[in-house]
Write a protein that binds this DNA or RNA. Structure first.
Length: 872
RNA sequence: GCGGGCGUGGUGGAAUGGUAGACACACAGGACUUAAAAUCCUGAGGGGGUAUCCCCGUGCGGGUUCGAGUCCCGCCGCCCGCACCA
C-alpha cells in the first residue's frame, strides 16, 4: 500500500457518492442540536464556475464541516441567482431562450460544484427564475404594498432610445448606452419603489449591532445611508414681477454661518426655476444645458460650477434691510434636501468657487483658534474647521455647535407665511429603491392596471404571474410589452378589460430574501415563520466585498419589511459577515501585444529568473502584472481543469493556504503543485503509519516517554489552534498549524519503527487527529485516510477531536534573556519559577556575566514564564 | 476632497507590547537513481569574522516603554470605497 500514490480522480467521485447515499448533509428542522447556518453568496449561473467561486465555497465548506463536527445542526444550502441581463443578451446573440440558457448553465455548474465535494444540502436547492420561487416574491410584494412599504412614483431614469430600455448608471458610458451606443436620454417614468428610506434610521442604528461584520462594510453602509442633521430654513422673497413664490426653502447643516450668507442657489429642477424659465429663454437654455451634462459621475466630477442670476432677491434673515441674490446653479441637486441652498463662501469650498466666479461677497464668520478677528480673511481656500463665531450679531463668541442650536431656536420662533421660519430636520442620502425594470427575464410585478379601478394587486389566489415562454428577442424593447396576449387581462375588481404591469423586478429583489427561503424551500408561503425564526439569522455569511452596499443593504431592508408583514421575526439577516478577497493571476502578452492564457504559456525558471514561452509557437511571452482573473485579460484558470488533474482537495487546500482570506490570493502553478505534493505526503504518512503499527506488536501499554509525550502535545496543541483559527476564519493559519503537526508526525514516523510502543500509540493517535483537522479542508483525502486507518464510519460524521487541557501547558518554559532589550541568551526553567530565582539564575549565567563585564545591572525586569530584561 | 485599509526576506505571509521572519512557495547544495521525476537531508534577512561571536534590520522621522512590527504624533507610498449631499 505504501508504494501507491493517492489518486484523487478515483477517490473523489467515490466519496461524493458515499456522502450522497448516506444523505450526510441533508439537514432536518426537527433536530434538537444547536443550529448553525452558514451561507455563501449564491452564484449567478453564467455558465461555468470560476476560481472566485472555488475560494468562496471552499471557505464556507470548512466552516460548515467544522461546525458539523462540533455537533451542531448545520444548514448549508445552495441556489442560483438566476434572473438577469446576461440571459437576455444570450437570447439576442444566440437565439436561445433565456430560460433554456439559464437552466442549462445551472445543471452544468451544479455538476462542477458537486465535483468540489461541498457539504451542501442539495435537497434545498432553489433557483430564483422558477415560479416556485418568484411566486412567493410576488406575494411578498403584495404584502409590502398593503403594508405601505411600496410606492409608485415618477422618477428620472437613463433611457436608451434604441434598446428602448432603462439603463443603470453603470451602463451609461460617456453618455451612451453600453450596448446600443445611442445617446442616453433623461426620461421621467412611473416606477415601483420599495420604501427603504422609511427604514433609514433603523438601518443605520442596526449597523452598531453587527459586530461580526467587517468595519469597512459598516462604514460603507453608514456613508451610503448618509445621515445629516440640519435646518430647513425659509427665505422671504423680495416682491417682484417674476416669481410666484413668496418664500424659498433651503436645507442647511450650517445654520451657524447664516451671517456669512451671500447668495441663494436653486436646483435647475426646482419648481421655481421651472416657473421662472417660462418667461426667461436664457434661463431655459441654461437649465437645458445642465440637463445635458447628464448624471454620469465622470461628468459631474469635471463640471465647472455654473450659475444663472434670476434677477430676484430674498431678504437676509438676520441682517435687516440686506438682500441676497437668487441664482440657479448646476451643482444643486433637487433630490437632496429642498433643492435649494444658501451659500456661505467663507466656509464651504464649493460656495467659495462659485462666489469668486460671480464676484459675490465672502464674509468670514468662523474665526480659527489662532487667528485674530481684525485681520482674518479667506483667500481661495474656505475655512471649514473649528472655531468661534464672529461677525455674527447674536451668535458672536459661540462655538459652531452652540451657534447651530442658537440659530435653530431663533428661527423656530419666527414665522414666514404662517410657517416656522426654521425647522430642525434630519436628511438621508439613501433614496427609495426603484425596482421596475423593462425586461423580460425577471420576476413579473404582480399588478394589474385598470382604467376604472386604478392600480390593483393581483389577488394572491391568482399567483404566480408566470412569465410567458413564447417571447421574441429580435427587436428592442420589452418582450412582455409586445407579447400579443399576455398583458391583456380582466380587472380582478370590476372584471373589465385591464392591462398587466409589464415591468419586472430588479434582480436584487431576488437575492434579498433567498437566505430566508432556504429555511423552508418548499413551503406554500414565502417562509414558515416558526422555522425561519429557528434558523435565522445566518450565522456566517461569506462573499465578495463588491456586495458591501447594495445586496447587503437591500437584504437588511427586506428582513425588516418581512418582519413588518409577519414573515420573519428578526431584523438583521446576517449575524456574521466575511468578505473574501479576489483570485488573481499573472498576465501574459505575446510579442504582438495580445493577451495569452496561462494554459498556453510555459514558464522556465533559471535560478531566480523566470522566462515565459508560448506553448505552441515557442515565442517569448512577456510576463505582466498580477490582476484579478478576467476573461478580457485571459488570465483565468479553469477550476474544472484543476479538479481534473490535481483533484478538488488540492484546489481547496491551495485556496485556503498562504493568503489571509480577506486579501487577494495569487493563483500560481507552483502553489497548486505544492498543495498536491502535500496531499501525497499525507497519504504516505498514513500508509507508513499503518505499516509500522502492523509490524510492531504493541499490545503492552507502556507509559509515555518524552518523545511520545511531545508528540501528543503537538497533536493536542494543533487541534486547539486549528479550532481557534477556523472559528476566527483564519484559514491560512489553520493550514500552517496542520503543516506543523504533519512535520512532527512525519519525523516521528521515521523513528517509530524502532521505538517503544508508547510512541507508536502516540503516532497513531496523532495521525488520526491530523486527518480530522484536515477533513474540513480536504474532505475526500481525509475519508480515504480515515478508512485506511480502520476507523469506523465517515470522518465527515465524526465528532471533532477533544483537547486535553493538560497537554496544552508545558512544565518548563524557555525564557529569553535580554540585555537592554536585545536577546543575548535563554534559560529553560520550570513553569512558575519565582522571579527572584530566575533573576539569580540569570546573573549566574556565563554569557551574562561576560556581557555585564563586572557592571552591576541597573534593573532586572522578570515577566514570569515569559522573558527577562536586564537593564545596564 | 471625505472615509477605510495596508506597508515585514527572492515571494505569499506569521508574530496577546516580550526570542521578528512560524508555515509555505521559490532557490542553492547533498543523498538515492544509469538518468529524470518523486522522496529524504542541509542551507539561507543583510553585512563582518575560519569558528565561538559582533553590527544592522519590519516604508521614513520623532515619542511613550525595562522592552515597539505592534501603542502615540508627523510624513511618504500603495490599494479600496464614496464623491457637487448643502
Amino acid at each position: 500500500m505504501s508504494g501507491e500514490r493517492y489518486n484523487p480522480r478515483e477517490m473523489e467521485p467515490r466519496w461524493q457518492k458515499v456522502w450522497d447515499e448516506a444523505k450526510s448533509f441533508v439537514v432536518r428542522d426537527d433536530d434538537a442540536r444547536e443550529k448553525y447556518y452558514v451561507l455563501e453568496m449564491f452564484p449567478y449561473p453564467s455558465g461555468r464556475i470560476h476560481m472566485g467561486h472555488v475560494r468562496n465555497y471552499s471557505m464556507g465548506d470548512v466552516v460548515a464541516r467544522y461546525h458539523r463536527a462540533r455537533g451542531k445542526n448545520v444548514l448549508h444550502p445552495m441556489g442560483w441567482d438566476a434572473f438577469g441581463m446576461p440571459a437576455e443578451n444570450a437570447a439576442m446573440e444566440r437565439k436561445v431562450h433565456p430560460g433554456a440558457w439559464t437552466r442549462q448553465n445551472i445543471s452544468a455548474m451544479r455538476e462542477q460544484l458537486r465535483s468540489m465535494g461541498l457539504s451542501i444540502d442539495w435537497t434545498r436547492e432553489i433557483a430564483t427564475c422558477e415560479p416556485e420561487y418568484y411566486q412567493h416574491q410576488q406575494a411578498l410584494f403584495i404584502d409590502f404594498l398593503e403594508a405601505g412599504l411600496v410606492t409608485r412614483k415618477k422618477s428620472k431614469v437613463n433611457w436608451d432610445p434604441v434598446d428602448m430600455t432603462v439603463l443603470a448608471n453603470e451602463q451609461v458610458i460617456d453618455g451612451r448606452g453600453w450596448r446600443s451606443g445611442a445617446l442616453v436620454e433623461q426620461r421621467e417614468l412611473t416606477q415601483w419603489f420599495f420604501k427603504i428610506s422609511d427604514f433609514a434610521e433603523d438601518l443605520l442604528a442596526g449597523l452598531d449591532t453587527l459586530t461580526d461584520w467587517p468595519e469597512k462594510v459598516r462604514v460603507m453602509q453608514r456613508n451610503w445611508i448618509g445621515k445629516s442633521e440640519g435646518l430647513r430654513l425659509q427665505f422671504e422673497v423680495v416682491p417682484n414681477d417674476k416669481a410666484d413664490a413668496s418664500s424659498i426653502e433651503v436645507f442647511t447643516t450650517r445654520p451657524d454661518t447664516i451671517f456669512g450668507a451671500s447668495f441663494i442657489a436653486l436646483s435647475p429642477d426646482h419648481p421655481l426655476t421651472a416657473q421662472l424659465a417660462t418667461n426667461d429663454p436664457a434661463l431655459a437654455e441654461f437649465v437645458a444645458e445642465c440637463r445635458r451634462q447628464g448624471t454620469a459621475t465622470e461628468a459631474i466630477e469635471k463640471a465647472e460650477k455654473k450659475g444663472y442670476f434670476t434677477q430676484i432677491h430674498v431678504k437676509h434673515p438676520v441682517k435687516p434691510g440686506a438682500t441676497l441674490p437668487v441664482y440657479v446653479a448646476n451643482f444643486v441637486l433637487m433630490e437632496y434636501g429642498s433643492g435649494a441652498i444658501f451659500g456661505c463662501p467663507a466656509h464651504d469650498q464649493r460656495d467659495l468657487d462659485f462666489a469668486r466666479k460671480y464676484d459675490l461677497a465672502v464674509i468670514p464668520v468662523v474665526l480659527p483658534p489662532d487667528a485674530d478677528a481684525a485681520n482674518f480673511a479667506v483667500g481661495n481656500e474656505a475655512y471649514v474647521d473649528a472655531g468661534n463665531i464672529f461677525n455674527s450679531g447674536f451668535l458672536d463668541g459661540l462655538s459652531i455647535d452652540e451657534a447651530k442650536k442658537t440659530a435653530a431656536a431663533h428661527f423656530a420662533a419666527l414665522t414666514i407665511d404662517g410657517k416656522p421660519q426654521g425647522t430642525v430636520e434630519v436628511n438621508y442620502r439613501l433614496r427609495d429603491w426603484g425596482i421596475s425594470r423593462q425586461r423580460y427575464w425577471g420576476a413579473p410585478i404582480p399588478i394589474i392596471h385598470c382604467e376604472v379601478c386604478g392600480t390593483i394587486p393581483v389577488p394572491k389566489k391568482d399567483l404566480p404571474v408566470v412569465l410567458p415562454e413564447d417571447v421574441t428577442f429580435d427587436q428592442p424593447g420589452n418582450p412582455l410589452d409586445r407579447h400579443p396576449t399576455w398583458k391583456h387581462v380582466h380587472c380582478p375588481q370590476c372584471g373589465g378589460a385591464a392591462r398587466r404591469e409589464t415591468d419586472t423586478m430588479d434582480t436584487f429583489v431576488d437575492s434579498s430574501w433567498y437566505f430566508a427561503r432556504f429555511t423552508a424551500p418548499e413551503a406554500a408561503t414565502p417562509t414558515i415563520p416558526g422555522v425561519a425564526n429557528a434558523w435565522l439569522p445566518v450565522d456566517q455569511y461569506i462573499g465578495g466585498v463588491e456586495h458591501a452596499i447594495l445586496h447587503l443593504l437591500y437584504s437588511r431592508f427586506f428582513t425588516r419589511a418581512m418582519k413588518a408583514t409577519g414573515h420573519v421575526g428578526i431584523d438583521e439577516p446576517f449575524k456574521g459577515l466575511f468578505t473574501q478577497g479576489m483570485v488573481t493571476h499573472e498576465t501574459y502578452k505575446s510579442p504582438a501585444g495580445e493577451w495569452v492564457a496561462p494554459a498556453e504559456v510555459i514558464i522556465e525558471t533559471l535560478g531566480e529568473d523566470r522566462k515565459a514561452l508560448h506553448l505552441h509557437s515557442g515565442e517569448a511571452i512577456t510576463i505582466g502584472s498580477i490582476e484579478k482573473m478576467s476573461k478580457s485579460k485571459k488570465n483565468v484558470v479553469d477550476p474544472d481543469e484543476i479538479v481534473g488533474s490535481y483533484g478538488a482537495d488540492t484546489a481547496r487546500w491551495f485556496m485556503l493556504s498562504d493568503s489571509p482570506p480577506e486579501r487577494d490570493v495569487q493563483w500560481t502553478e507552483a502553489g497548486v503543485e505544492g498543495a498536491s505534493r502535500f496531499q501525497q505526503r499525507i497519504w504516505r504518512l498514513v500508509s507508513e503509519t499503518i505499516e509500522i503499527t502492523k509490524q510492531s506488536a504493541h499490545s503492552v501499554r507502556e507509559s509515555d516517554d518524552n518523545e511520545a509525550k511531545a508528540l501528543r502535545k503537538a497533536a493536542h496543541r494543533a487541534v486547539h489552534n486549528v479550532s481557534q483559527d477556523i472559528e476566527g476564519l483564519r484559514f491560512n493559519r489553520a493550514v500552517a498549524q496542520i503543516y506543523e503537526l504533519t512535520n512532527a508526525l512525519v519525523r516521528a514516523s521515521g523513528i517509530a519503527a524502532v521505538a517503544p510502543s508508547s510512541r507508536l500509540a502516540a503516532l497513531e493517535d496523532g495521525v488520526a487527529r491530523l486527518i480530522q483537522l484536515l477533513a474540513p479542508m480536504m474532505p475526500h483525502l481525509a475519508e480515504t485516510c480515515w478508512e485506511a486507518l480502520g476507523k469506523s464510519g465517515l470522518v465527515a460524521d465524526a465528532l471533532w477531536p477533544d483537547v486535553d487541557p493538560a497537554l496544552l501547558v508545558d512544565d518548563s518554559v524557555t525564557m529569553p534573556i535580554q540585555i537592554n532589550g536585545k536577546r543575548r541568551a535563554e534559560i529553560v526553567v520550570a513553569k512558575g519559577t519565582a522571579s527572584a530565582d530566575v533573576e539569580a539564575l540569570v546573573l549566574s549565567l556565563d554569557e551574562i556575566v561576560r556581557i555585564l563585564d563586572g557592571n552591576a545591572p541597573k534593573k532586572i525586569v522578570v515577566v514570569p514564564d515569559r522573558i527577562v530584561n536586564v537593564v545596564v
